[in-house]
């Protein structure tokens, strides 16, 4: 449990608009161990979402390195990073980001499609994932007909379907009421007990005191304030 799974070294992310340059992330150094739960806390604009994106391989740093599970992903070409992401990382987004015109079942299928597995195996994986997120009973419902809380659970099922080691969440409770937020944290607890590494970027105070072992990393203005 003490081996680092995510290592961020001297990370910078700058955006250049013409002559002006905005530094969104400045000199980030971070080490996350396997099975840890990290909360990146900060208001919007603090850079936490960008950091999360870079960790997921969705964005590329301007400088620095990101090593995930011993693989340096900063300069990996698209083909490799996509495969990596499909296998090792599950993502949960702020706005759920489901395909509204598809059913719950089909939505959870999406990450599995490019992996080249056959339909039967896929079915198994989807079913166990839906069960874990407590949304099996709605598997044939169209995503557009779900409530906010249900959509979030579908998003969780989708993030878990390929059994990734790392779960990244971007403001997962921003569009949920208190009741659903608590349910969400319960699921996170379940995942933590399964040994998954979890990183949550949020400014929801609910995450300050999680019912399980976690590390809060405050961020502001693109820098980490203190790293305990």
């Amino acid at each position: 449990m003490m081996s680092p799974i995510i290592v961020v070294e001297r990370l910078y992310r700058k955006f250049t608009l013409g002559v002006e340059s905005i530094t969104v992330l400045e000199d980030i150094d971070l080490t996350i161990d396997r099975g840890e739960c990290i909360v990146l806390k900060g208001i919007s604009g603090s850079g936490k979402t960008t950091l999360l994106s870079i960790m997921a391989g969705l964005d590329k740093p301007t400088e620095g390195n990101v090593i995930i599970d011993s693989e340096s992903i900063a300069k990996l070409p698209d083909l490799h990073i996509s495969k990596f992401r499909a296998k090792k990382i599950g993502m949960i987004f702020q706005h759920f980001n489901l395909l509204e015109h598809l059913s719950v079942w089909d939505n959870v299928l999406v990450p599995l499609v490019p992996m080249g597995i056959d339909m039967d195996r896929a079915r198994e994986m989807i079913e166990s994932s839906l069960a874990l997120a407590n949304i099996s009973h709605k598997s044939d419902t169209l995503a557009s007909r779900l409530s906010g809380g249900e959509k979030q659970r579908v998003a969780i099922a989708r993030a878990l379907v390929s059994n990734p080691e790392i779960i990244l969440c971007d403001e997962p409770t921003a569009n949920l009421d208190l009741g659903n937020s608590v349910k969400f944290i319960e699921i996170l607890q379940k995942l933590h007990s399964l040994g998954k590494t979890i990183v949550v970027a949020t400014h929801d105070p609910l995450f300050d005191n999680l019912p399980f072992e976690s590390r809060v990393i405050p961020m502001a203005n693109g820098k980490i304030e203190t790293d305990i």
């Binding site: 250049t16 590329k60 301007t62 400088e63 900063a74 300069k75 070409p77 698209d78």
Partner: peptide, 17 residues
């Protein structure tokens, strides 16, 4: 320039497709 982190390089990588 594969080693480069510039947006131009990333754009080229997309162009190669």
């Amino acid at each position: 320039d594969f080693g480069s982190f510039s947006t131009a390089q990333y754009r080229l990588e997309k162009r190669s497709y």
